[in-house]
Amino acid sequence: MTSTLAPRRRERPAVGSYLFLIVLTLAFLAPVVWALLSAFKPAPSIISAPLTFDPSTFTLANFTAMFEDVPIGRGFFNTGIVLVTKGTITLFFAPLAAYAFAKYSFVGKNLIFGAVLITLMLPTIVLIVPLLLEMKLLGWVNTYQALILPGAVDAFAIFWMRQVIAAVPDELLDAARVDGCGEFGIFTRIVLPVIRPGLAGLAVLTIMNIYNDFVWPVIVASSERMATLQVVLSTLAQNITGNRIGADYATVTGELLAASSVALVPLLVLFIALQRHFINGILAGSVKG
């Protein structure tokens, strides 16, 4: 007597789940869409009719005035230098440190790794005064070194990559050693291709953190010459009123929205382009096979 098992039906998500996700998506996107649309409205209309948008009133006046009043180009330039340099340091050294913690055995490994993790619990405000005093002693205040080096290899990046590298089979590494491959060659030829999704996810997070960083840059690089994008945005209203006599609240608001829209576009494009890699990076190392 034989029996056949009916194929298991794939459960479909309930309609309520779809509705909840749609409402949640709209709640997150509504402020962003409003800011982008309002940036193209005449300044008085932003205040008098904030929830409406008339395509016939489309204007670039807010953007034109903003570029004249605010040194946002300098902010983008400084942020770009910090982003490229600091991001490169993070994505090079963090996986190397994580590889040592994940695949090597040495005296005090767990103690050192625990000390690294403890730094994750320290609030940023606790580290600001010691770091600022250190930058002053080195003569690095208002320099790129001060913006780039502190926190270039942070504990989260090491922890993230250690979890990803721990899932790499040891047999692959042993086979490479038998073939005569050196340790750094094993890392570059064997480990890096395997952990590429996790590295891409770390890259997205690193770019977002550096791009949005405000507290440390506003303290250590207070001069206009070294101001990053977020620092420029924080002083934007002051710059507008200082450069334009009689600038009213509507004018300031319009230029603020224009500057925020310009600052938002790079991150939005980056996330849309790399969202698949980001999701794969989040899942990397979560399942062992």
Rank of each mutant, 00 (worst) to 15 (best):
M226Y: 04
T4L: 03
L202Q: 03
A250F: 08
T2M: 09
S45F: 14
D69H: 12
P13E: 14
F53N: 05
R177S: 08
S48V: 15
W216P: 00
I128G: 01
I245F: 15
W34F: 05
T64D: 09
M66N: 03
V262C: 03
A35P: 13
P130A: 06
G80H: 05
T25R: 07
T85E: 08
T90M: 10
G73E: 08
V129Q: 07
L236N: 02
A100Y: 06
T251V: 06
V15A: 15
V204N: 01
L268W: 08
M161H: 01
N78I: 10
V232D: 15
V220R: 07
Y104T: 05
M208S: 12
S223T: 07
L149I: 12
G285N: 00
A152Y: 12
Y249N: 13
F58W: 00
A259P: 03
A273K: 02
D248Y: 01
V84L: 06
V141Y: 02
G87H: 00
L205H: 08
L132V: 02
F92V: 12
L91T: 02
A166R: 15
H277L: 12
Y211W: 11
N209L: 14
I81K: 15
A65E: 10
G108F: 09
P130H: 03
T85A: 04
T88P: 07
K136H: 11
Y249A: 14
F187D: 11
P95E: 01
L270W: 05
L173K: 10
L202I: 03
A49D: 15
L229P: 11
I22W: 10
N239D: 13
T64N: 13
T52I: 10
F159S: 04
T90E: 15
A155F: 10
F92W: 10
G285D: 03
T228K: 08
N280F: 15
A237L: 11
F76I: 12
D248P: 02
L60I: 02
